[in-house]
Design a protein around this nucleic acid. Sequence first.
DNA 1: GTAATTCTTTACAAAATCTTTATGCCGCTA
DNA 2: TAGCGGCATAAAGATTTTGTAAAGAATTAC
Lengths: 230, 230
Amino acid sequence: MTAQNKIVVIDDESQIRKILSITLGAEGFKVIEASKGKEGIVSVANNHPQIVILDLGLPDEDGLTVLKEIRTWSNVPIIILSVRNSEDDIVKALDLGADDYVTKPFNTAELIARIRANIRRTQQPDNQSVIVNGDLKIDISKRLVYKNNEELKVTSTEYMLFYLFFRNIDKVLTHNFLLKEIWGPVHTEDSQYLRVFIGQIRKKIEDDPAHPQYIITDSGVGYRMKLLSN
Amino acid sequence: MTAQNKIVVIDDESQIRKILSITLGAEGFKVIEASKGKEGIVSVANNHPQIVILDLGLPDEDGLTVLKEIRTWSNVPIIILSVRNSEDDIVKALDLGADDYVTKPFNTAELIARIRANIRRTQQPDNQSVIVNGDLKIDISKRLVYKNNEELKVTSTEYMLFYLFFRNIDKVLTHNFLLKEIWGPVHTEDSQYLRVFIGQIRKKIEDDPAHPQYIITDSGVGYRMKLLSN
DNA sequence: GTAATTCTTTACAAAATCTTTATGCCGCTA
DNA sequence: TAGCGGCATAAAGATTTTGTAAAGAATTAC
């Protein structure tokens, strides 16, 4: 029997665990609850869930520590729960390998959407050379980006950005991550370049660059490419 | 009914046949097993598989003999399975017409990747000797390039460039790749030659060399030949 | 051996790309 | 509502990359 639709929820607030159990249960997931960090780690190891929901504000142990430990032996998608105005912790968690985050108080529908998006993303083979998203397409073997099947003229920096976004659809990429990937480990202070280049690629792919559909800003955190149905 | 996604596996070890059956089966292939060389040959003849996986260490018959016999009447892609440290056999097999090889113990993911790569490769007609693109045409067997059906006078270096571009239409060829292909693995620092020769061939094929339609520059990356409708 | 062809190298101009600066916007908070 | 921080965008300046002509070197053909 395979581990199907299991979700491990690590949160000290029984209120939240209860809500998640009910809501996600109704969506067909089997929710396994853990109230403490250690307990959660063991549960993830034993149950091999499809996804983990981890509250950063655990009492007995820092949520980041839990995250780090799980990441030493598992690539299971992890969604962070965090209070608003703690962008710092969110960024740290994402840089440590968390896949996504939701701020409390959270909207249930959005959490479910995020869960599904992350399951979808991790189930996709990461070696395909053509990736389609809405009007957009990247052909990695040809190093070309298309909108409406028309080739876009992209510089190498812009291409690098597209590449990272297409390979991580629906995932937040932090400023740090993007800066490091593109400009190397040095330029990590200022994200000025990044803004300019994000503007640049939006101009090329968005119908209305001021209200982007593809490249979404997560203020204080980073950017993400949204999956649009084709 | 067409022979779709069929793979013939010729291997005396039932263990390996089993693993391949399960793994490749999960990837959507229909695996036909053969434990002996003769049996395998017959099976390839009867089933017209998309690809053959052949163990070189067969008991009743030398794997190389099986390979040779299949090659007398079929061009089906053949991937060799071979124990490590038998480079001699691998080279012989490749010279006899094998398409690729994987050493035992093998990584399943890699084998699958090789299978796909070989199927992809053989499905595209890359062996055609005449390739047309817009006003241009190359005849590889005659080593000639035409524009508007008129022969162009091309030097051997220029021809090499044309050859690479025609064989990779719409694909960006990096400076490095082109330099290595044409000048060997040594000259990798400077791409000065390349620029001169690109200018050279543009002068011969472009109506307006300053605004090229065929050979496009990807600044910082390389050049590519664009596909133009004929 | 000489001429013609092709390849390599140099030098400079032109174009493309990247970086920086400046300015304005938006949402939030005091 | 004024001020602040993070973000978007245009545009100027700096830098890198590319295009092209032309001269010298090497190779090939006769």
